[in-house]
Amino acid sequence: MAYHAVTIKAGKGGFGGPLTLVPTETRNKVVSVTGGGIHPVAAKIAEMTGCPAVDGFSTGVPDNEILVAIVDCGGTARCGVYPKKRIFTVNVLPVGQTGPLARFITEDIYVSAVDASCISLADESATQAATPKAGTPTNPTSAPKTKAQAKAEVAKMNEGKEKNLATRIGIAIGGVVNKFYAAGRETIDITIKTILPFMAFVSMILGIISASGLGDVIANTISPIASTLPGMLIVSFICAIPFISPVLGPGAVIAQVVGTLLGVQIGLGNIPPQYALPALFAIDAQVGCDFIPVGMSLGEAEPETIELGVPAILYSRVITGPIAVLIAYVFSIGLYS
């Protein structure tokens, strides 16, 4: 069977690319990691390349067989996982270099805001040029190796030079200060790239809800449910239903928005404060259900394990979701009273 190379460019508001994908005998799976099912973009790429499309949610695929991963990540985690492994990544949402793995999201490995019109057959010359690149993804072990070599070289240079005490203390302090500085930089990075954008978006929604009068509707419907134990058990059960939980999961956006709405109601006195603890578990029974295959592959699980592991976790949540609420309810006794 003959494969065809395709070129994918970024869509409107997108980042990265264009990527040229050249399928080979071994590296030929188009993996759709979009919360179940094959995304139309994945189907289109599969059709044009002649490669099989695989639902990455129900089937595990070894990393070295993945031609390209299709994700629908809003910028929290998934969009950086595959670029980190140097696997070509197509995000159907317009997301650039964000999230905790932002530094791995580069133009040569990642393209976003992709729809069907962004995909075209690659011309022959581009194929030629891209083949070696696709065949040899950057070796992840090369970095530490060179680091070790550099260390050895430095050690060699320092041979025979006896360091005095002051120098050694100076170097040690310098190392510690550098670590503090790096920690500060990482913190500011995540504040600007993920915390502030989230605050902007949620405060806009909250503002509109409260100014438009929708807030009263929410207060009258959600508050009675969230201030009784049976109500919260039902919420956690709904969040844990196996075909709903993966949809509710991505980026914990829904849990965060609901959490903020409940917080407002607690602040207004519509929900008693001790219910905060069980509520935290009730709205979060679906945590990470969208991320199961990716998360397990980060833990180096075999594809067969992932295939069975996904339903195992989804079923387990139906049991453990409500149990978590019960435990939290018990532990909330004596809180704020």
């Binding site: 910028g75 929290t76 985690a77 999230g99 905790p100 913190t187 995540i190 504040t191 993920t194 915390i195 989230f198 949620v202 980026g251 914990a252 849990a255 965060q256 928005v257 609901v258 959490g259 903020t260 709405l261 409940l262 917080g263 407002v264 109601q265 607690i266 602040g267 207004l268 006195g269 929900i271 404060p273 905060a276 509520a279 935290l280 709205i283 979060d284 704020y336």
Partner: peptide, 18 residues
């Protein structure tokens, strides 16, 4: 988990308000 603080902080904001 800097990207998903508001599950906790959203609810915590209400407690602080009280």
């Amino acid at each position: 988990n800097g990207g998903e603080l508001f599950v906790y902080m959203g609810i915590a904001a209400g407690i602080t308000q009280l």
